[in-house]
């Protein structure tokens, strides 16, 4: 998307060469910029937490139902016992043995994160592969696209029984859920990205004698990369949501299972604690992906500042 938008900008060709000066300025401010970002993130979260605490202080929020942050974060040791129950609740093992509460939270968080990560990678590779094949081979397009379009509106929830039938419990069904929730949309997104690649770029390669395979490998794939990473980031949160559903319905252990446990034992503190952990994990994941995006797409200017001048 980004590439296409940039190329069709009528002023782009005529624009003066400001990037050099701008990037020097950015470099000198980079240190401050970073601090400022952390400051605003903290402020944003504090404001939200503060409002919640205020509601509690005024007696509007019942601490049995909506315990404010200082309550659900205060007894991590207590909450931690509910994490990583797979090892803790084994027969013949005492509740007090095994990893500490903190370690348990880490282990469970890592398990869920790993599923999201693996699912996301698998879904992206499969979807980009299939999307490119659909455009590359006409017959593949006719053969496969109708089914993909048919399946893409199906809610991930509907795939849950299939995941269980096919994979039982453990990592596999949770990963399957993530893949199946993202795959179909990402195939359609890939095709859309390919269709919007600037024709001039393709024609330049054609006049230079590039074969169809070369045009795909050296023009189309790099040209759709920015858009695809954007799609990936959009789908990251979708992956997080689906993995929780998969875990909470018994196809595995993890953050989703803890939420379900909290629900069944009526433990609001645990619910909010888990939500906080998921939030932090998702936030970190998105941040890492943004870093990777900037690394991989070195040639794209930062467009976030465009609307600031308004």
């Amino acid at each position: 998307m980004a590439v296409v938008a940039r190329d069709s900008e009528p002023g782009a060709a005529a624009g003066a060469s400001r990037p050099a000066a701008a990037s020097r300025l950015m470099a000198s401010m980079a240190g401050l910029d970073w601090l400022a970002k952390i400051w605003w993130t903290c402020l944003s979260i504090s404001l939200f937490a503060g409002l919640w605490e205020l509601c509690w202080a005024l007696g509007w929020a019942d601490e049995k139902l909506l315990p404010p942050p200082h309550i659900f974060l205060s007894n991590i040791a207590e909450q931690g016992r509910y994490f990583n129950t797979a090892t803790r609740w084994q027969v013949g093992q005492s509740m007090t043995e095994g990893p500490s509460a903190f370690e348990s939270v880490l282990i469970t968080g890592a398990a869920t994160t790993a599923r999201v990560f693996v699912g996301l990678i698998l879904a992206s590779v499969l979807a980009i592969g299939v999307g490119v094949l659909v455009r590359y081979y006409r017959f593949f397009d006719r053969l496969v696209l109708p089914t993909i379009t048919l399946l893409s509106p199906v809610s991930p929830i509907a795939w849950l029984p299939v995941a269980i039938f096919l994979f039982g419990i453990g990592n596999a069904p949770a990963i399957f859920m993530v893949v199946v929730a993202l795959f179909f949309h990402m195939v359609l997104a890939t095709i859309n990205q390919i269709d919007t690649v600037n024709t001039n770029l393709i024609n330049v390669a054609r006049t230079m004698g590039a074969s169809k395979a070369q045009i795909y490998a050296r023009v189309i794939v790099p040209a759709i990369l920015p858009g695809m990473l954007q799609v990936l980031r959009m789908n990251l949160f979708g992956a997080w949501m689906v993995v929780l559903v998969a875990e909470s319905t018994g196809v595995g252990y993890g953050m989703g299972q803890v939420i379900m446990l909290a629900r069944n034992t009526f433990n609001p503190s645990l619910v909010f604690f888990t939500i906080a952990v998921i939030g932090v994990l998702g936030f970190t994941f998105d941040w890492l992906l943004r870093l990777a995006q900037r690394r991989i797409l070195y040639w794209l200017p930062d467009t976030a500042e465009r609307l600031r001048v308004l």
Binding site: A12, L201, W299
Partner: peptide, 14 residues
């Protein structure tokens, strides 16, 4: 043998 040059820049940005 026949090169084409377009109005908008058609350089590969990457």
């Amino acid at each position: 043998q026949r090169s084409l040059i377009f109005q908008e820049t058609s350089l590969f940005p990457w």
